[in-house]
């Protein structure tokens, strides 16, 4: 029987754990009894149709929203403390194309600390190495707005990487992305696999990158049928995926299967 995991690290400690998390916007319930966990070094895809609550899950992980019930543990602490070790790649869809800023200055922001006055040479070394990782060194001095949508997204990945995060969180990284940028992005993510924990959020519910270890799906109704909950689906290699997707092989998500949250390790284990 297939396990549903391309590769799995139940022996590794938890990086993120949602325990019966409940969340609502005012009177509108969004999440109900959502439980899942991610181990160190895993590559996890969080999928779900638009409006299912993926962005809410992301906001909760990043400490930008607080749950109404249940608990969230990130790197052993609350999200507001643990998020320091996260490299966040937002969609940044509302970005202002008239904002004057260079690619290097955007990536430099990844090194910002709350009360710093200026960036050090160590910061610039990290910026240049992140630009190199994302194959953007040639574009460092270019205005950010002059780049293509795919290039801009890679700049935001470089910005996240410049702080050498322990976990990378990407919000819809491939939306509006050209095939070349997509290939380069997944090549870079492939190089990080195993070393950095990756949580990638996507509305493509059919296929995920072959780098993916586990798939979590937001969207099924919760126990009291009010809010949504998160279930884990099995994945299997497929040849049906559209060409040029994820810059390589894709895995098919089996939506008719669900795995228990604690199926990979004993309840409360591997802490």
């Amino acid at each position: 029987m297939p396990t549903g995991y391309a590769s799995h690290h139940p022996d590794k400690p938890f990086v993120l754990r949602f325990d019966h998390v409940q969340f609502s916007y005012g009177q509108v319930p969004v999440l109900e009894a959502a439980s899942f966990h991610i181990h160190e070094g895993e590559f996890v895809a969080l999928v779900g149709p638009n409006g299912a609550g993926k962005t809410t899950v992301l906001k909760l992980v990043l400490g930008l929203a607080q749950p109404n019930g249940g608990s969230i543990t990130l790197f052993g602490s609350s999200p507001r403390i643990g998020r320091d070790r996260i490299g966040y790649v937002p969609q940044h869809a509302d970005y202002d194309p008239t904002f004057p800023i260079s690619v290097e200055e955007v990536v430099r922001m990844g090194r910002i600390r709350p009360f710093m006055r200026s960036y050090s040479s160590k910061d610039y070394d990290a910026v240049h190495s992140a630009l190199q990782t994302m194959e953007l060194s040639d574009l460092a001095k270019r205005p950010y707005h002059a780049l293509s949508g795919g290039q801009r997204r890679r700049v935001l990945v470089a910005r996240a990487l410049s702080a050498s995060p322990d976990m990378l969180v990407l919000d819809e990284p491939t939306s509006n992305m050209d095939a070349d940028s997509e290939r380069r992005l997944f090549a870079a993510l492939g190089a990080l696999k195993g070393k950095t924990t990756v949580l990638i959020v996507t509305h493509d519910t059919g296929f995920v990158s072959s780098l993916t270890d586990r798939v979590l799906c937001v969207g099924d109704v919760g126990p009291s049928r009010i809010g949504r909950t998160i279930v884990q689906h099995r994945i299997e290699p497929t040849k049906d995926a559209p060409a040029q997707l994820f810059g390589g092989d894709a895995l098919k998500v089996l939506h008719d299967s669900s795995l228990d949250d604690d199926c990979c390790c004993p309840p409360g284990g591997a802490e």
């Binding site: 400490g63 930008l64 966040y88 937002p90 904002f99 955007v106 910002i112 709350p114």
Partner: peptide
């Protein structure tokens, strides 16, 4: 430039 990112950075 990106208020949400700045917030995540503390």
């Amino acid at each position: 430039f990106d208020n949400e990112f700045a917030q995540v950075k503390g």
